[in-house]
Amino acid sequence: MATVNPWKKFIGLLPGGVRAVGTVTAVNTASGTSTVELRNGVPITARGIGVAVGGKAFVVDGQITGPAPELPQYDIEV
């Protein structure tokens, strides 16, 4: 049954999945995976080898989708 709730319709338009940005710390070409350190310091293993070691990468649902720009990060405490 289709919903008439505008909020539910809006949420349905948004892409799903987990997205993150991190720094590639190692690339394993044999398995096609890379180790990515997230901004909070947690290392994860992601599928894909498209970003060189030391570069920033976009990670979507455990897969590297491409390089991320080198932008400054600010932590603001409220």
Rank of each mutant, 00 (worst) to 15 (best):
M1P: 10
A2V: 15
A2I: 13
A2W: 05
V4M: 09
V4K: 09
N5C: 11
N5P: 01
N5T: 06
W7T: 04
W7M: 10
W7N: 05
W7G: 03
K8R: 07
K8I: 07
K9R: 05
K9E: 10
K9P: 00
K9S: 02
F10T: 08
F10K: 07
I11M: 13
I11K: 14
I11Q: 12
G12H: 08
G12E: 15
G12Q: 08
L13C: 03
L14P: 01
P15C: 00
P15I: 00
P15T: 00
P15N: 04
G16N: 01
G16K: 07
G17I: 06
V18N: 13
V18W: 00
V18F: 01
V18Q: 08
V18D: 09
R19Y: 03
A20G: 01
V21G: 03
V21K: 03
V21A: 03
V21Y: 04
G22R: 07
T23Q: 09
T23E: 11
T23D: 04
V24N: 04
T25Q: 06
T25I: 11
T25H: 02
A26M: 08
A26I: 06
V27A: 13
V27R: 12
V27L: 11
V27Q: 08
V27T: 14
V27K: 10
A30C: 00
A30T: 12
A30Y: 05
S31Q: 07
T33Y: 09
S34W: 01
S34R: 05
T35Q: 14
V36H: 04
E37I: 07
L38R: 10
L38G: 07
R39N: 12
R39I: 08
N40W: 02
N40G: 03
G41I: 03
G41A: 04
G41D: 01
V42T: 05
P43H: 03
P43S: 06
P43D: 04
P43W: 01
I44L: 04
I44Y: 06
I44E: 05
T45F: 05
A46P: 10
A46C: 15
A46S: 15
A46I: 12
A46H: 08
A46T: 13
G48N: 08
G48D: 07
G50Q: 15
G50D: 15
G50R: 13
G50Y: 07
V51R: 01
A52C: 02
V53T: 14
V53Y: 06
V53A: 12
G54I: 06
G55V: 04
G55W: 02
G55I: 01
K56S: 12
K56Q: 15
A57M: 05
A57E: 02
A57N: 02
F58D: 10
F58H: 11
F58K: 03
V59S: 05
V59P: 03
V59E: 03
V59D: 02
V59L: 10
V60Q: 11
D61L: 11
D61C: 11
D61T: 10
Q63C: 12
Q63P: 01
I64G: 04
G66L: 13
G66K: 05
G66Q: 11
P67N: 10
P67Y: 11
P67W: 03
P69I: 11
E70N: 15
E70I: 10
E70S: 14
L71K: 12
L71N: 06
L71R: 14
L71P: 00
P72G: 15
Y74M: 14
D75L: 15
I76E: 12
I76G: 10
E77R: 14
E77A: 12
V78E: 14
